[in-house]
Write a protein that binds this DNA or RNA. Structure first.
Lengths: 140, 140
DNA sequence: TCTTGCACCTCTAGTCGCTAGAGGATGTAG
DNA sequence: CTACATCCTCTAGCGACTAGAGGTGCAAGA
């Protein structure tokens, strides 16, 4: 049973060293055992937990949501309704965000296309920003 | 020439009062004249500037980008190449964000659909989070 | 054995764009 | 004149890290 240093944990999980320590400080990761020289010594289970956290963060789950998901994972006999609800809520957020970004994209495209590449006083980018009324009236 | 209070400026621009003071503190808005009682007294030009800022923020431009756009607007004889570049960069950011959110949406949908609404140990949501290999290999 | 040099430790403070709250002054309507 | 809303400044907090200072541990080469 070789001990896993924080650096190895970082390399295998793709989570930066200070971020791992941060996760520990906010209680997402348990405090690992320490070596004689007071260095963190992780175990495979910690690496799995770290991978879980990383994946969830990549999917945009907030730390509090991840905290809940982790407690669910820790107790596999519970109903998964909460996990389901958290994922659904995240899905709805993502869908809304996509919609608003699409509207935004349309408006930016209009701005960029309309730019005559001349001087600022003819610039559609500046003009549109200065006058919301010129927008294609995307909801924002 | 009636003086415009910060509250009126807030109502007409839709920017909250503390946010207006914040914009002043970081130099996006000029320091307005003060009334006898030391209250800010805005002028129409300030309201236009505030509207510009708000619109740009809604489009997701960062404060530093807005700072540049504002200096461009202040000097209309400059080339609008910078404004154009800033808007284009923002457009690219938005497009990338949309792409990554679409991938994310697909993965969340798989998770949610796959949830059997039973116990956690059969929950696809938890399972997928725990094992990245189960992803549809969206790039993340 | 010594030394070099990297990885580790803790702690504090900074990032971005606000937002909240304390504690007090001013302005306005009845 | 009294409420009460609005204004003022100032500091601290949010989320999720990130950066840096100042120090210790450890493994490998000379």
């Amino acid at each position: 049973m070789k001990k896993i240093t924080i650096g190895e944990a970082s390399r295998t999980s793709g989570v930066k060293v200070p971020t791992i320590r941060y996760y520990e400080s906010i209680g997402l990761l348990p405090e690992p055992n320490r070596s004689e020289g007071n260095q963190r010594a992780y175990e495979p289970a910690d690496l799995r937990r770290l991978a879980f956290i990383r994946h969830a963060r990549e999917l945009g789950f907030e730390v509090e949501a991840i905290r809940t998901l982790l407690t669910l994972q820790d107790d596999p006999h519970q109903s998964c309704a909460s996990a389901d609800a958290i994922a659904k809520a995240r899905l709805i957020e993502v869908e809304q965000r996509i919609r608003s970004l699409m509207a935004l994209k349309a408006e930016l495209e209009l701005m960029v296309e309309g730019c005559g590449h001349g001087r600022v006083d003819q610039c559609r980018v500046i003009e549109v920003l200065a006058d919301h009324g010129q927008c294609s009236h995307a909801r924002h």
